[in-house]
């Protein structure tokens, strides 16, 4: 379970990146956080992973305070980032092995690694190939395999479909559904409204650091998510235009 209470982040330059965010993602739930660039999505992730400290408010992973026990909370979370390069001179299996051990999985065998790589749709011939020869999509699959093999209760994904071909993106969504079915809490930040419509249980739209909209599947299917999203984005664009003119 991922939970944020009145979470705010103001950077040293005074910019308020996140303003009183309240959010709870339950086990067996896929939550899509949508929003334009700079809306506060990545800041939210960085706070959950304790890459930065909140200015106020609190965060919990499996009811453990992230700020007070950062190392403890990381046992219960997997992370898939955008454009992860991983270690180019290691093979896919070696990368997987390294991060699995880092995540505390020390008894896994080569077969376990191969199975996970198969499950994310990686070709067999790529398992022992150096990662520097991989395409972005293939690397993203390895990144996902790393998140899966950790078998954490919570999975956080930051723009994982960015740069992926449609087939790979669809495969990724199927994997997320499988993870949800296993009871994982999934927080995914993206611009990809169509994938949100396809698999999200709940969707939140962020704008200027605030969560301006929160809908469950029934609600956003009924209200036409594209329309709502565009509405908020349009406002943002108009707001930006006004700023430029001013």
């Amino acid at each position: 379970m991922l939970k944020a209470i009145e979470l705010s982040k103001r950077y040293e330059d005074g910019h308020l990146a996140l303003d009183s965010l309240n959010l709870e993602i339950k086990p067996g739930e896929i939550f899509f956080l949508l929003g334009a660039n700079g809306a506060g999505k990545t800041t939210t992730i960085n706070l959950f992973l304790n890459f930065i400290e909140p200015s106020s408010g609190s965060l919990f992973i499996n009811d453990i305070d992230v700020v007070k026990s950062p190392l403890e909370t990381k046992k219960y979370v997997s992370f898939v980032s955008e454009n992860v390069m991983l270690y180019g001179n290691f093979s896919a299996r070696q990368n997987l092995d390294f991060f699995a051990r880092l995540g505390g999985k020390t008894t896994l065998t080569k077969t376990d690694y191969y199975n996970v790589m198969r499950s994310v749709g990686l070709q067999e011939e790529a398992f022992e190939r150096k990662l520097k020869t991989f395409s972005k999509g293939m690397r993203q699959k390895v990144g996902l395999a790393i998140a899966i093999i950790k078998d954490a209760d919570n999975v956080i994904l930051d723009e994982p479909t960015s740069g992926l071909d449609p087939k790979s993106a669809s495969e990724l969504m199927q994997i997320l559904v499988n993870l949800r079915n296993k009871g994982k809490s999934i927080l995914m930040c993206t611009h990809d409204i169509f994938r949100a419509k396809a698999v999200a249980d709940r969707v939140g739209i962020m704008k200027e650091g605030r969560l301006v909209m929160l809908r469950n599947r029934e609600e956003f299917m009924q209200d036409d998510l594209e329309k709502i999203y565009l509405h908020y984005m349009q406002e943002a664009v108009m707001f930006d235009d006004i700023n430029v003119i001013a």
């Binding site: 992973l49 304790n50 890459f51 990381k74 979370v77 997997s78 992860v84 991060f99 790393i146």
Partner: peptide, 9 residues
């Protein structure tokens, strides 16, 4: 991007 991945553990 590996630093974030390392520190997410």
């Amino acid at each position: 991007g590996t630093m974030k991945l390392v520190f997410s553990n």
